[in-house]
Computed example of a mutant assay.
Amino acid sequence: MQRIALFIATNLAILLVVSFVYNVISRATGYQLGQTGGLLLFCALFGFGGAFVSLWISRWMAIRATGAKVIEQPANQAEQWLLKTVQRQAQKADIPVPQVAIYPSPEANAFATGRSKKESLVAVSSGLMTAMSEDEVEAVLAHEISHIANGDMVTLTLIQGVVNTFVMFLARLIASAINNAARGNNQQGGGLGIFAYYGIVMVLEVVFGIFASIIVMWFSRQREFRADAGAATLVGPDKMISALQRLKRAQESKLEGSMMAFGINGKHSGLSKLFMSHPPLDDRIQALTRRPL
C-alpha cells in the first residue's frame, strides 16, 4: 500500500513541477502548442521524465517518508532473522538481495520499492513484527520479494509515464481549444490571457490525473494478485493465506468510518474500490484458495 501511495504522490508532485517548467520553456521559446505531433512528443518527454524521476528516488523517498532504519548490522535476533529470511527468499527468487529496513508504525504493513532489482528495498513496520507469527511475516516478505522479482515498480513507471503523457497532452489540447474559441468570439482576436490559459491547463491536469490514477490503481491490484501467487510459490499458500487473514482481523476494528483511498481491508463501496491499490483481502484469499497446487 505505502509503496504505491508514495510513488503516486511523488509522481503527481513531479508532474506538476515539470508541467510548470514545460509551460515556462514553451513560453520562452515561442513553441506553438497547436502542433499536435510535436506537442505529444514534448508531453511524452516530460510525462515519462516525471515518472522515471519518481522511480529513481523512490527508495530514498520511502526511507525518509517512513523513518525507516536500514539494517546493516543486526542489533538483535529479530533483525538477524529478518535479514536471513530476505536473503534466502531473494536467492530462491533469483534476484540480488535487497536492502532490508524496519520503520516505526503500530500498523502491520510492509512495502518494497527501488529503481531496479539491484537497487531495491524491503521494509516492514515494527507493528508487523509484533502482530504476526514468523510464518506470517515470512509470507509478507515473500510477497514483497515477488514484487521486486516481477519488476512491478519499473512496469508501474511505464504505465505512469503513458498516463502522464496523455494527462499533459489532453489538458493542453482542451485548453488550446478553449483559447481558440475565445479568440473567435473576441473582436480583438486576443483569446485567453496567458495566466488564464495555464490556469486552465493546471486544473485540467489535476482532474485528468485523478481519473488516470484509476488506471494505475487497477493495474496495481492485478500486480497484488500476482505477488500473492509469487509468495505462495516461495513459502506455500497456507502461510500467505494466514498472513492475509491476520491482516484482515487486525484492520477490521481500525478503519471503521475513516476509510482512506488506499485502505487495505475489504470494507469499501464500489466507487472507492476504483482508487484502491490493493484488492479486498477476501478476494486475495479466495484467489489463493482457488490456486492450483
Rank of each mutant, 00 (worst) to 15 (best):
A78G: 07
L41P: 14
A177H: 12
I25Y: 15
F20W: 15
G30H: 10
N150F: 00
P96R: 09
I63S: 00
L156K: 06
R64I: 08
L192P: 15
Q73P: 09
G193V: 14
T130C: 05
A65S: 13
S133E: 14
A65T: 04
I241E: 02
I159T: 05
G161D: 04
L255V: 10
E134L: 09
A44D: 05
A28L: 15
Q251C: 05
F225L: 01
A51C: 07
P279R: 04
F111L: 10
D228Q: 12
Q188E: 09
I241Q: 03
Q222T: 11
A231N: 09
A231L: 07
E224K: 08
V206H: 06
A112D: 11
Y197I: 04
I8D: 09
L15W: 03
T85A: 01
A44N: 05
A149Q: 01
A65D: 07
R172A: 04
S116V: 00
A229R: 15
W81A: 02
S126P: 03
I285Y: 02
S133F: 14
A112F: 13
A110R: 01
G49C: 04
R226Y: 13
V235G: 05
F46H: 07
I148H: 02
F275K: 07
E79I: 00
A78D: 12
A28H: 10
F208H: 00
Y197Q: 04
Q251N: 11
S26A: 09
E144C: 03
Q99S: 09
L6V: 02
Q99I: 04
A51W: 00
S213W: 06
G161C: 05
A90W: 01
D152P: 12
K239Y: 09
I148R: 06
A101E: 02
M61N: 09
L204G: 07
Q80S: 11
A142Q: 03
E134K: 11
G151N: 03
L271C: 05
F211D: 00
A28Q: 10
I174M: 09
A110E: 02
A139W: 14
